[in-house]
Nucleic acid binder design. Structure first.
Length: 273
DNA sequence: AGATCGGCCTGGACGC
DNA sequence: TGCGTCCAGGCCGATC
């Protein structure tokens, strides 16, 4: 059972990184020689202006017209060297794939499974990052419009859950919150071309489950950690994801796990239609 | 252009 | 106990 950083987890990381990094200069960058990062060395010598987020991407504009784009992948985490038990010789100090020497701190990027990505691009130029360049609206902003969501859901031939995971209809929803939102909206993950009523319920449920998880600083099973090493508190509130075999809180039916679009999917076969 | 599918990567769970 | 196998899964690139 992994724990994948999705929008609430990435936002929780962003909130801890921004105050520490904004205004700080990157003196040097050290990279795992096996890592396939994109031109991260170019960040050296540049000042970080802010740490922002789009979907599951962390975006750090640098002075000189550059931008550091970061994705945590499956197991990525940022930790400050020598803080909160993160130091050579301490338990758990391992799998460091990149290190940023800053003015007054050393920031490590830990990533056990190496799915994470770090890239430096010209500011705003995401042409080489397909998912980011075609990313849908931020779910918690006014850009996430219910009418447009319905139209786009009706246009695709995909089942609703795989469609959500493409990041094109809405940004930042992954496997956990897709299952949670579909359960809350009582929509079957394999449904297609939702009615406006169902699509509106799903639209609202996506916003709710993400906002509630941000309040709890995300969902931790094992891997996801905030920058200070702490776990998020949302795992105890999951109703669908990882709950196969448990009774549906709405009607008591045993929750079923299937594979849909290559992803584990848990839902109530009775009330999610 | 949209949809689908395999590959990437590693540790933990599981079976014998 | 120890070894082998399977699974998790976001994104990317190839293919249809």
């Amino acid at each position: 059972m992994g724990s994948v950083p999705e929008l609430p987890e990435v936002e929780s990381v962003r909130r801890q990184l921004h105050p520490r990094l904004a205004g700080s200069r990157i003196r040097a960058v050290h990279l795992d020689p096996q890592a396939r990062f994109g031109a991260v060395e170019r960040a050296a010598g540049h000042r970080i202006e802010a740490v922002r987020r789009r979907g599951k991407y962390l975006l750090a504009p640098l002075d000189g017209g550059l931008e550091l784009v970061m994705h945590l992948g499956m197991t990525g985490a940022f930790r400050f060297r020598g803080e909160d038990g993160w130091a050579p010789g301490e338990a758990g100090f391992s799998h460091v794939r990149a290190t940023f020497e800053l003015d007054a701190a050393v920031l490590d990027f830990r990533d056990v499974r190496r799915f994470g990505r770090l890239t430096v691009v010209a500011a705003g130029d995401y042409a080489g990052i397909e998912t980011l360049s075609r990313l849908g609206p931020e779910p918690l902003s006014d850009d996430f419009d219910a009418a447009r969501f319905h139209v786009e859901l009706a246009r695709t031939r995909m089942a609703v859950k795989p469609a959500l995971l493409t990041q094109r209809l809405v940004a930042g929803v992954g496997n956990i919150y897709a299952d949670e939102a579909l359960w809350r909206a009582a929509v079957a993950p394999y449904a297609r071309r939702l009615s406006r009523g169902r699509s509106d319920r799903l639209h609202r449920a996506i916003r709710e489950v993400l906002a509630e998880s941000i309040e709890r600083e995300g969902t931790t099973f094992r891997d996801y950690r905030m920058v200070n090493g702490e776990s998020g508190r949302n795992a105890a509130h999951l109703v669908a994801y990882g709950q196969a075999g448990r009774p549906c809180p709405r009607d008591g039916t045993s929750l079923r796990k299937v594979v849909l679009g290559g992803r584990g999917t848990t839902y109530c076969p009775r009330c999610q239609r």
